[in-house]
């Protein structure tokens, strides 16, 4: 077992042999990796490879069967409440409340994540200005185009300046131009020191990550920078890398 003092300060995620079993089925099999501060880390894998299970453990939502992991310096088994305070989370499926106005959504999440009361109004205006959404402050979220919702959802997920933000397929179905604007928001967040942990099925987006891991059958089959992965596998792009590695999957879909 590793103790807290052994976690290097610049590592925001440290996982050692993290494993999760459901009955006889090993969904996540001895996962070991580290993610540095301000890094954009792509977490790729085929459907059913174990990505969601791993992500749920790192967010403190599901307890591991064995192994250990530290997120923002906290133990995922014993300090889940502390972890929840310093992470942000956004997925394609659920992000904002459709029946609340834009400012109400920001207000709600800011409150949940404990942003000081006196700061909320000012920071809300700053955020809307940065996104160019000032005119939509009073609009219901359901009236916004999908791409705007996703940009707003991301901004809300990092409104409390978390140490790390988990993004689960944030750009699925989004317009190509907006998809690129979304990635620019990711870059800005990373430049401010927020670590970004992202899953995606768009392989061009894998190229935007500092490092990428590819999960196959519950374990990490490869982990490196996109350039190194392409060189190692003599692949012309990340799509090719993904196909070469994911083809090794033996586990039949259950």
């Amino acid at each position: 077992m590793i103790s807290k003092t052994q976690i290097p300060e610049d590592k925001v995620i440290v996982a050692r042999d993290l494993t999760k079993k459901f009955g006889n089925f090993t969904a996540v099999d001895h996962l070991s990796f580290e993610v540095g501060k301000g890094e954009i880390f792509g977490f790729l894998g085929a459907n059913g490879a174990g990505k969601t299970t791993a992500m749920r453990m790192l967010c403190g939502l599901s307890k591991q069967t064995s192994g250990e992991a530290w997120v923002a310096g906290y133990d995922i088994a014993r300090e889940t409440e502390k972890i929840k305070r310093c992470i942000g989370y956004m997925s394609q499926k659920f992000a904002l409340y459709e029946d609340l106005k834009v400012w109400e959504n920001i207000r709600l999440y800011a409150g949940i994540y404990g942003v000081p009361e006196k700061d909320i109004a000012g920071r809300t205006d700053d955020l809307l200005k940065r996104l160019g959404f000032e005119a939509e402050k009073q609009a219901l979220v359901k009236s916004l185009p999908l791409g705007w919702k996703q940009k707003l959802a991301f901004s809300v997920a990092i409104f409390h300046e978390p140490k790390i933000v988990f993004l689960d397929e944030p750009t699925g179905g989004v317009d190509p131009a907006v998809r690129r604007q979304f990635w620019e928001l990711i870059y800005q967040a990373a430049d401010r020191g927020i670590t970004v942990f992202v899953t995606t099925h768009y392989m061009d987006e894998a190229e935007y990550c500092n490092r990428v891991s590819i999960m196959v059958d519950g374990h990490i089959e490869a982990l490196d920078t996109p350039n190194n992965l392409k060189q190692q596998l003599e692949a012309k792009n990340m799509d090719d890398v993904f196909h070469q590695l994911a083809r090794k999957a033996k586990r039949t879909e259950q």
Partner: peptide, 13 residues
């Protein structure tokens, strides 16, 4: 209607 949305690249192929 969007049979491959949210599906990984290998299964999409």
């Amino acid at each position: 209607d969007e049979p491959t949305t949210g599906v990984d690249p290998v299964s999409r192929k």
